[in-house]
Amino acid sequence: MRQISALMRKEFLLEWRQRYALNGMLLYIVGAVFVCYLSFNARRNLLTPIVWNTLFWIILLFSAINAIAKSFVQERAGRMLYYYTLASPQQIIIAKILYNTVLMLVLAGLGFGVYAFVLGNPVNDIPLYIAALVLGAIGFAGSLTLIAGIASKAENSATLMAILSFPVVLPLLLMLLRVSKNALDGLDRSVSLDEVSILLAIDAIVLALSWMLFPFLWRS
């Protein structure tokens, strides 16, 4: 536990020292939202709720892939080797996933704020929408961190990151779209119970797999 928190602190410190990367990600999502806003000709009432919702999650997906892709690339191989002498691989992956979850929560919160600000906010059930954002952040962080670890070992890691992660996050994304659509329409919460439990199950599967598989990954 202490090692995990130390590793987390290291991640935050590293991020803070390279603030341009963090600011870059924040600007990325704000820029993407603004491009969408202008592309729809700045007419917010043209967007139907379905388009509004889908567009937001696609922006978030791309920001997540970009943000998490660098979680293994930004550290040099020698430094990784040093960590592995200090902590077990499970602790490292848990710390990375936790850190990425926090990062995703920040990105999702900011993205949602800006998006709702410029494109209007038709959401009826805000708490449920935020719950979907949180579940999405955990799921994205869990599945994409392992994929980032896999991709960082290969040569053309940027392309590989994209093609490996699109199909992997798709079940998650579809469920998220459904839950957030329910929240958007303000349907009764019992309607979304099924989807939320499946989201939790997918998150659990992804986290358990990362926990089990990462020890095999880092050795190479």
Binding site: P167, L217, R219
Partner: peptide, 20 residues
Amino acid sequence: RRARISAVYNIFAFAVFIPL
């Protein structure tokens, strides 16, 4: 390296494929 990393991905992919 190829064998190990693609084995990791293969297991991960199957676990995603089933719910899909």
